[in-house]
Amino acid sequence: MARRELKSRNVLITGATDGLGLELAKAYASRGHRVVATGRQLLSNDLDFFGSPNISYIRADQSEPEAAARAIAQAMEKFQWQSLDLAILNAATGWTGHAADETPEQISDQITINLTAPVLISKAIAPLLFAAKGQLVMIGSTAAKGQSQFATYAATKAGLEGFVRSLREEWRTRAHVQIIHPGPTRTKMHAKAGLKTGFVRMFFMPTKRAVRAIQRSIRNRDGKRVLSKTYGWSSIFSSAKEGEL
């Protein structure tokens, strides 16, 4: 384990009530880091839900990007964080089907939650990130190269990649900006987006493995990392039931 892991750090993870975000929050908290986790649900008891005193949950509904960014900035002020070492902007939503059947609301929801919100949150946390010379990590998707079954989702993820590419240069001396593109992972994302995955789910990357790969990429301070190359046939030896709704 790298030496810098020993120090307790301030970590922000969005979309942390499920899937990759939840596992990432638990993983960082279990190593003693202080985590602010966000989601749009109302949780009755943070400790019961996350099982770690290191995780503080705040409600930040990204369908209202300005309000979500403000809520996150206010929470950090409340916890008296002087700096932010790591921000993982992971929250996203999807819709699948023929592009001509997508309604204006479905299009604008995905753009707002997947792109506008991360942009405004990045802006809101910039001063704290600069103070720590921290790391801003976007969770993209391998769909960012184009996907006919979920065109708008793919577009929002490509948008994130374009944002990261340019911002990384802008912030070069002040903070590290990177994007990680997970391939198909055994989370509830597909079911929520209305995609029936069937038997191919066997080949999806187990969530825990994706989380380990994401942490590795963060430690390496990669610029851009595509995870699907790291999974494959070995996935079929673990339970494909994981994350099914």
Binding site: V119, G146, A158, G159, E161, S166
Partner: peptide
């Protein structure tokens, strides 16, 4: 890329990938 206009660049990349994604279904 377009440092100094990162959100503009984001919208234009998104547009390019949307065009690529809908080419076949359209």
């Amino acid at each position: 890329g377009y440092p100094g206009a990162s959100v503009y660049a984001a919208t234009k990349d998104a547009l390019a990938i949307y065009a690529k994604s809908v080419r076949k279904p359209f």
